[in-house]
C-alpha cells in the first residue's frame, strides 16, 4: 500500500516568533446526525474513550477524540491507520438510521503552531479572541484564516493545532509563516 504523505510533507518554519510545523496526516471522520442519539454516542465512546464534547468543545486523549463542529456535526480525530476500522464501527452502529460518517482525512492538512507568541500569530489571521482567558484548551474554534476556512484548538497554553483543507495547505503555511515572521510580535496578550 502507498504511504500517506501530507500536503507539505512535514515542512517546518522555525525562524520566526513561533514554530510552524506541517504534521503527518491524521485520521478525521466527519459525523452528522442527531448528536444525542445512542447510535452515535455509543460507538464514539467505544472508539475514543472520551466524553461527548459540549458545544464548541474538543475532548482529546492522546491522538484520539471528538470535536463539536455544529449542532448536528462532530469530528472524530484518530490515528490515520485506524480510520477504516473506526468507520466500520460507526457504520455498524448507525445501521439504517439517518446519520452520516465519512472519512475526510485526505481532504485536510494539519499544522502545529507552538511558542509563546502562538496566540497572537493566530489572532493576526482570524477574527477570534485568542486570549488565554477566552480561548482555553478543550475548545475548538471554526473560523477563517485570512481568506480560507480553518479550525484550531489549543493543545496547551502555548501550542495550537490547526486543520484546513488540503488544497489550501500551502496558502495556510505561508500565512502562518508571515504572521510569525521575525520581529513581528505584538505582545498584546502579555501586557
Amino acid at each position: 500500500m502507498s504511504e500517506p504523505i501530507s500536503a507539505l510533507n512535514g515542512a517546518v518554519y522555525n525562524q520566526g516568533i513561533a514554530e510552524v510545523t506541517a504534521l503527518d496526516p491524521i485520521g478525521m471522520i466527519s459525523i452528522r446526525g442527531d448528536l444525542a442519539a445512542g447510535y452515535l454516542k455509543k460507538p464514539l465512546k467505544k472508539i475514543t474513550g472520551v466524553a461527548m464534547p459540549d458545544m464548541r468543545g474538543i475532548n482529546l486523549d492522546g491522538g484520539t477524540g471528538v470535536a463539536w463542529m455544529s449542532p448536528d456535526e462532530l469530528l472524530l480525530i484518530c490515528p490515520y491507520a485506524d480510520v477504516a476500522t473506526n468507520l466500520e464501527t460507526l457504520h455498524k452502529a448507525i445501521g439504517t438510521n439517518h446519520a452520516l460518517a465519512v472519512n475526510v482525512s485526505d481532504a485536510r492538512a494539519v499544522f502545529r503552531v507552538t511558542g509563546k507568541h502562538t496566540r497572537e500569530v493566530l489572532a493576526k489571521l482570524a477574527p477570534v479572541d485568542t486570549s488565554p482567558e477566552a480561548f482555553t484548551p478543550g475548545t475548538i474554534r471554526r473560523t477563517r484564516l485570512a481568506q480560507v476556512p480553518a479550525a484550531f484548538w489549543m493543545v496547551d497554553t502555548d501550542t495550537a493545532e490547526l486543520v484546513c483543507f488540503r488544497s489550501v495547505a500551502q496558502y495556510v503555511f505561508d500565512l502562518l509563516k508571515t504572521a510569525a515572521q521575525p520581529g513581528s510580535q505584538v505582545n498584546y496578550h502579555r501586557g
Partner: peptide, 12 residues
C-alpha cells in the same frame, strides 16, 4: 445562536 460564537461580520 446555533453555536454561541460572537464574531465580527467577516466570519458570517
Amino acid at each position: 445562536p446555533n453555536c454561541g460564537i460572537t464574531a465580527e461580520e467577516t466570519e458570517f
